[in-house]
C-alpha cells in the first residue's frame, strides 16, 4: 500500500514512530556532528557535547548567575533554596512575569474586539484604526517605545501589546461577527438585552476560539518579549541568551532554548487542556 494514500490508516505504533522520528534524527545528527568536531578540536564551543550541556544546565539550575551576589552560606542551602536563587529560576521568573502581564493585557483586546463586533458605533470608531495599527511592524516601534516608556518593564510589555493586541482585537471582532444572527435575535426574543446577549451568548460562544487564537499567538508574544529583553533588560531568559552569545556559551544557550520551547509547549498544552475541560461542547461540535 502506498504511503501517499488519503485513506491510509497507519497503526498506532507507526504513528508513534513517525511522530518521534524527526526528533530522534535531529538529536542523533547533532551528537554525531558534535562528536566529530570534538575529535578534531577538544576545545570546540560551537557544538557542546551532552556532558557539557548537562553540566552547564546543572550550574544554571543550582547556582546563581555570575553577576548575582552569592550568599555566604550558599553551600549549606537546601536544594529548593539553591534552585530559587539560581540563574535559570530567576530568569524564568522574570520572563514569566512579563509574559503573564502581557497575556493579562490581551484580555481587554478581546473585549474591544467583542464590542466592535457587537455594537456598530464602536466598530465604526475603532475598526479602521486597528486595521491600520495591525499593519505597523511592532519591532519598528521599539525605539519609540523605549524613548516613550523608558527601558523598564513597561516598554517591553507595551511592545508585546502593540505587536499582538491588534491581531487579537481583529480576531475577536471577526469571531463575533461570525456568530449566526439567529442566535442574537433568539437572545432578544428570550428577553435578553444588548449586554446580556454580548456577554452571555456571544462571548461565551467565541471564548474557546479566542483562547485558540491567543494560543496560536503565543510564539508572537514570546518573540516580542525576547526582542525587548535582548535589547534592554537586566534579567530574563532572552537577556541571558544574548549575554551568553557574547561568550559563545553554547553549552548554556542550547539548554536555555530548549527550556523556553518546553515552557511554551507546556503553556500551549495547558491552554488546550483548559479549553477542552471548560468547553466540552466546542471540540466535540
Amino acid at each position: 500500500m502506498s504511503i501517499l494514500q488519503i485513506h491510509a490508516q497507519p497503526s498506532r505504533t507507526t504513528v508513534w514512530i513517525l511522530s518521534w522520528f524527526l526528533f530522534a534524527t535531529g538529536v542523533v545528527s547533532y551528537f554525531w556532528v558534535s562528536r566529530g568536531r570534538h575529535l578534531d578540536n577538544p576545545d570546540d564551543r560551537v557544538m557542546p557535547t551532552l556532558r557539557q550541556m548537562g553540566r552547564a544546565f546543572s550550574d544554571a539550575t543550582l547556582k546563581p548567575a555570575e553577576d548575582d551576589e552569592v550568599s555566604a552560606n550558599a553551600d549549606q542551602q537546601s536544594l529548593a533554596a539553591k534552585i530559587r536563587s539560581s540563574m535559570l529560576w530567576k530568569d524564568t521568573v522574570a520572563t514569566g512575569r512579563r509574559f503573564l502581564i502581557s497575556m493579562a493585557l490581551l484580555f481587554p483586546a478581546v473585549l474591544l474586539g467583542l464590542h466592535m463586533g457587537m455594537f456598530p458605533y464602536v466598530g465604526s470608531f475603532f475598526l479602521r484604526f486597528v486595521l491600520f495599527f495591525d499593519k505597523i511592524v511592532a519591532l519598528s516601534l521599539l525605539p519609540i517605545l523605549f524613548i516613550a516608556f523608558g527601558i523598564d518593564e513597561l516598554a517591553k510589555v507595551m511592545l508585546i501589546v502593540v505587536g499582538v493586541a491588534p491581531t487579537i482585537v481583529l480576531d475577536s471582532f471577526n469571531l463575533t461577527r461570525s456568530v449566526p444572527k439567529e442566535q442574537i435575535v433568539k437572545g432578544f426574543t428570550l428577553g435578553a438585552g444588548d449586554f446580556s446577549i454580548t456577554y452571555r451568548i456571544v462571548l461565551k460562544q467565541i471564548w474557546p476560539r479566542v483562547l485558540n487564537s491567543i494560543r496560536l499567538n503565543l510564539k508572537a508574544v514570546m518573540l516580542f518579549l525576547f526582542a525587548g529583553e535582548m535589547i534592554a533588560s537586566q534579567d530574563g531568559l532572552a537577556y541571558r541568551i544574548a549575554l551568553l552569545r557574547r561568550h559563545m556559551g553554547m553549552d548554556t544557550i542550547i539548554p536555555y532554548v530548549l527550556w523556553v520551547a518546553l515552557l511554551l509547549f507546556l503553556v500551549d498544552f495547558g491552554m488546550r487542556t483548559l479549553n477542552r475541560k471548560l468547553h466540552p461542547w466546542f471540540l466535540e461540535a
Binding site: 426574543t189 428577553g191 460562544q205 461542547w281
Partner: peptide, 28 residues
C-alpha cells in the same frame, strides 16, 4: 427590535451550542 413577545424558531442555529438542553430552555 425583537423582544420576548415573539418567540422565534429559525431553520438553523436555533439553540445556543455552548449550553446543555436544560440550560438552553431555561436561558430566557
Amino acid at each position: 427590535q425583537p423582544d420576548r413577545r415573539c418567540g422565534y424558531v429559525p431553520q438553523k442555529y436555533s439553540l445556543f451550542p455552548d449550553r446543555t438542553v436544560l440550560d438552553n430552555i431555561t436561558f430566557g
